[in-house]
Write a protein that binds this DNA or RNA. Structure first.
Lengths: 198, 198
DNA sequence: TGTACATCAGTGAACGCGCGTTCACTGATGTAC
DNA sequence: TGTACATCAGTGAACGCGCGTTCACTGATGTAC
């Protein structure tokens, strides 16, 4: 809830409030950790405006959510890209990319779930998929992976990362009586086996 | 929506309507494919009773959902158990179990998502986890798996299956431009690599 | 066998709430003269 | 430089809806006599 009065945007502000609305939606779902909290009125409250003001920028609630999803997929892609850029060695790069992916999901679990619960997510995910596929291909070229089908193996790896991302919220794992598991090492093992790293 | 008049349950019916209410909740989420459809009024409509009648059997909506979750985890465990029982060879058994797990999720995706979105799911999942761990251990004993830590590998496999279960709804995969992937073979490959089958 | 009655599974009306969306409006800002 | 005015970002009240939950009740069923 915003207390101080909002200063109204200047005349030709164009998409400025639109961006603020999407940012408010992101903050709302990330902080409440509950996709059901994503209501038009809730977003408006978070943005410090009244609900009808949103209609000047989006036709309806679904359009705001679309904006949130587009921004989130781009954020995910950028996180994976940054992880890849930070490593010289192709194996280290692939593992860093996997870790970045999972950490994005752990960092904002409700938003991540929403991204992949929506039925039309795939086009937005292709860019990230391509990054991972290229990372595996780089491992193969360097002689570090025995993958015979990087495309298929990217798919398998993606599915596994998605599973870790959504199943293994660290605070839950105690219930599964997993003992003192070493999470980074586990993730590395998973990536090594699926991507057939040597 | 039920049209004909319901015949009222006999006197000492005990948990009978309670079971019918849970069954109605399951039918509702499975058919609507939308967790938001799980409302108390919706469940009552589906069960052919009025909403207040539910309160004689459950304290509130959350209790009905708890009943749905308990029944669903038992259904999942039974499906995996049945798959294991149908195979002599331990490797075939493990693969059949993985397939049964994923098919349960594909068969009722909204319900499966709800099962693992709830924060306290883990105790209910332990029984199934134990089955898979035993299946891997059987492979190791038969000399068919190189796993050195079946508990850890069960965890990795579970996460991967969960990822396939929730990411790879078949009707979506075309968006990801996966081409004509052979799903059963993919799943088998994934299980083989993670469980280190020979 | 027949009748009065207690039981209790389920009903129907009502409540307050937050929701998405609409509509007429207000008032600060930039521009024309 | 000063004033009238058009623009338009955002407001406030209102709508109908489905929700969870409450309450007093009804009426078929089983039992006591």
């Amino acid at each position: 809830v915003e207390t101080s009065a909002r200063t109204r945007n200047p005349r030709g502000s164009g998409t400025r409030l639109a961006d603020e609305i999407v940012a408010a939606a992101i903050a709302l779902i990330d902080e409440s950790n509950d996709p059901a909290a994503l209501t038009l009125r809730g977003i408006a409250r978070r943005a410090g405006i009244t609900a009808p003001a949103i209609y000047a920028h989006f036709p309806d609630l679904a359009a705001v959510v679309d904006g949130l999803l587009a921004a989130s997929f781009e954020e995910l892609r950028a996180a994976v890209q940054a992880a890849l850029d930070g490593q010289e060695d192709p194996v280290a790069a692939l593992i860093a990319a996997g870790r970045a992916y999972v950490e994005f999901a752990w960092g904002q679990p409700a938003r991540y779930r929403l991204m992949f619960a929506a039925s039309g997510y795939a086009p937005d995910a292709v860019a990230t998929f391509t990054l991972v596929q290229q990372a595996i291909t780089n491992c193969v070229r360097a002689g570090a992976s025995a993958s015979e089908d990087p495309h298929l193996d990217t798919w398998l790896l993606w599915a596994a990362l998605h599973g870790v991302a959504t199943l293994d919220k660290p605070e839950r794992s105690d219930y599964l009586r997993l003992g003192p598991l070493n999470r980074p090492a586990m993730l590395k093992t998973l990536i090594r086996r699926i991507a057939r790293l040597r």
